[in-house]
Nucleic acid binder design. Structure first.
Lengths: 329, 329
DNA sequence: GTGAAAGCGCTAACAC
DNA sequence: GTGTTAGCGCTTTCAC
């Protein structure tokens, strides 16, 4: 593979001139530019991007850290980021963590090693503080709210959305409400638990510990959840499920067993993907693609040295068939 | 950020020795090694991976080329590849093409630029010949069968699977069978069309051009497909759908309208993901994750200079509720 | 075992 | 406008 020196020799110019042509520097005589271009074509030259990056001190590469790309929540985010990245001529690497802190650490190491110019974190097994210590090596963006003001974040107002969801269920006449989370130790979980407790208290309803369910992520988990719900001693009349795939699994299993979801059990979901739409599941819509796009924008701004920014995206509760006004007998 | 020279100075050794320590070269006196290690710790040293890659001439990076990560087929493949890549200490970049040949070209350029060491192609808007011309710059693996023997491939026996599917539908008593493809110009489409025509001929059934449907990719497309099916003048009794998401959309829409899928319409699907399983859709199971893993293995072997290899994975037709023996009245 | 020095391929002062 | 040259940070040959 030809390099810049060979091109220079062939075109009878210096390497600087070749470099100038390569980088569209204005001060190159047209005649020389053409000789260089010709030489490049003849030698089928392509610049070695690694050398460029080493010399320039960046990698033009974004790292996206997420638990699992098979989950529609994350693939939705990635799609938004990828669109923007592509438009900006930037590439990206995926770091799948499976919520493993060690894997997150590896992503952080890649930042320090300069494999990537920055990271967008959609996974947070490590604490925010810990992650943000690595900011000295490049921008880090979160897709969840955090109180640390040194980093940019984009998210919806999770606790507000969560409260609104609970209110909706209460307004439908439910008091015995369960919540279903992906992970109780997640970034949003604590404030959600608080909101849940507050709401239940205001309903004058004591919480059965069975009603706080976690570790539910997939369609299969949702199917299983239905079975578990049926077996509960103190069965809730409504489930607030923070993930569309789980909700879909629940609903499909209910239907399969001939049980209608709506009055009881009612389910309210989060995220709003194609599947929950097709199934008519009431859900709180998160604009995932937009969120991904804005996460990239924030990353790009941070690269340019702009100061950090917290962006809050709108959410929307969409009532479908799985939450209806309950006949309180 | 400290570099190797500063470490050398601090430890009172040469850069060579530092490099040896970094690369676990055996010939370093224990005492010096410890001094170096100490200096690295004190200066919080991390090697600049770009410099390493430039010097070594590789990037330790795999490029995965696919149309769209939001599609479960591709995220399934990626999951398999990512597992293996991670275990091998290799990173990967995603190239989403949306079936756009220009985007595929960009991935090929990244190979030539040495941004990635090789590519796994799960998208093929460009012809195989065209893509394989770029092999001089690094290994290229296909996830579809190809007659070119210079590259490694992993896939299931698509046409055989397709034939088996058609036979199954015929055995259920169907003669008026439609096929639903993602794209008629895809890699497998030609042989599928041939198999379809052969089968229909052997059933003594002429093909209505309405029965060859393409451009169906998503759940929404599947819902719409159901509506289209209902409006057909010459309505087929069975649809062979080459994609689980489309099948699921079709089935859900049918159910919503109170129409039972099984005898007519019957649907047979391809891929077998969680959703089609939950819905009880008859489907031809493709071991996606394994396919991804083996694709990576082949890539790794190719990097090591091993000769190319064609791997064929087993498929399995799983009968569920959407194909049943038809009462031919 | 160890170090000097010549790369890897490109960029960007700086001088002309 | 153009060329010389010193980096970017690491690896690796070669001599000792």
């Amino acid at each position: 593979m030809a390099n810049i020196r060979e091109i220079a020799k062939k075109a009878g110019v210096s390497v600087t001139t070749v470099s100038r042509v390569l980088n569209h520097h204005p001060y190159v005589k047209e005649e020389k530019r053409e000789r260089v271009l010709k030489a490049m074509k003849e030698l089928k030259y392509t610049r070695n991007i690694q050398a460029v990056h080493l010399a320039k001190g960046y990698s033009n590469m974004l790292g996206i850290v997420l638990p699992n790309i098979e989950h529609s929540y994350f693939s939705g985010l990635v799609t938004g980021m990828a669109e923007k990245a592509q438009a900006r001529g930037m590439h990206f690497a995926l770091f799948q963590t499976g919520y493993d802190p060690l894997k997150e650490k590896e992503a952080l190491m890649s930042l320090k090693e300069r494999r990537v110019d920055g990271l967008i974190f959609c996974s947070n097994a490590l604490s925010d503080e810990h992650i943000l210590k690595w900011q000295e090596f490049g921008p880090i963006i979160f897709c969840h709210p955090t109180q640390h003001d040194t980093c940019s974040t984009v998210s919806i107002a999770h606790d507000q959305a969560f409260k609104e969801g609970l209110h909706h269920l209460a307004a439908c006449g439910h008091e015995r409400i369960a919540i279903v989370l992906a992970r109780t130790e997640g970034a949003n979980s604590e404030s959600r638990l608080q909101a849940y407790q507050d709401m239940m208290q205001s309903l004058g309803q004591s919480i059965d510990e069975e009603w706080i369910i976690d570790g539910k992520l997939s369609l299969i988990d949702g199917k299983q959840l239905f079975a578990e719900w049926q077996k509960m001693r103190n069965r809730p009349t409504a489930l607030f499920i923070t993930n569309d795939d789980v909700s879909a699994g629940f609903l499909l299993e209910a239907r399969r067993r001939g049980i209608k979801v709506g009055e009881s059990p009612a389910i309210l979901s989060f995220q709003y993907n194609q599947l929950s739409e097709a199934l008519g599941i009431s859900s709180i819509h998160i604009p995932l693609k937009q969120m991904g796009q804005e996460a990239f924008d924030l990353f790009d701004l941070a690269l340019k040295g702009e100061k950090s920014e917290k962006r809050m995206l709108p959410f929307r509760l969409i009532e479908r068939t799985t939450t209806v006004l309950k006949n309180n007998r």
